[in-house]
Amino acid sequence: MTDPPLPHVRTPRPRSPGPWARLGATALLAAPFPALLWVGGYARTGPWLLGFPYFYWYQLLWVFLSSGMTWCAYLLMTRTGRSPDHTPGAYGGPDEDRRYGGYGTSSGRSQNPEDRGYGGYAGRGGRGDFGEYGFGDHGEHRERFR
């Protein structure tokens, strides 16, 4: 199987949460890692709570903390920075992105004429993501973190 040559793709950048929301979400998601990976910080028996040694109740407590923090991160990433509801044509041209719909599919999805005409790519809010800055010129595979 040979793959067709890659067209030049100009990729839009979807609207994303603001820098503060992003920073907050990152901090919330990162917090459990030092809290649980620094084992020396909680590897002791006292103080006991409801009959549980510290080592055990501390970690069980983090189940709740981490769950709550992840939920807050979810709210930060989705409820802020909503983009306008419809931006026609923001996605470039009709065929730019789907020529490789899964590799080796026997019939490309672009053969369906109803599929043509994209709604704007930045159509919906709530699509915040990490690491989506700097996804610039795809053709040269230049991608940077942030």
Binding site: T11, G101, R109, D115
Partner: peptide
């Protein structure tokens, strides 16, 4: 470095966006 069969926009597409649906060609 070889080619890339995906595009940057692919990584943010959500349900309701173009071509994000159960794969009909199958």
């Amino acid at each position: 470095n070889g080619r890339d069969g995906t595009a940057a926009g692919d990584y943010h597409a959500d349900a309701g966006d173009p071509h994000v649906e159960p794969i009909r060609e199958l």
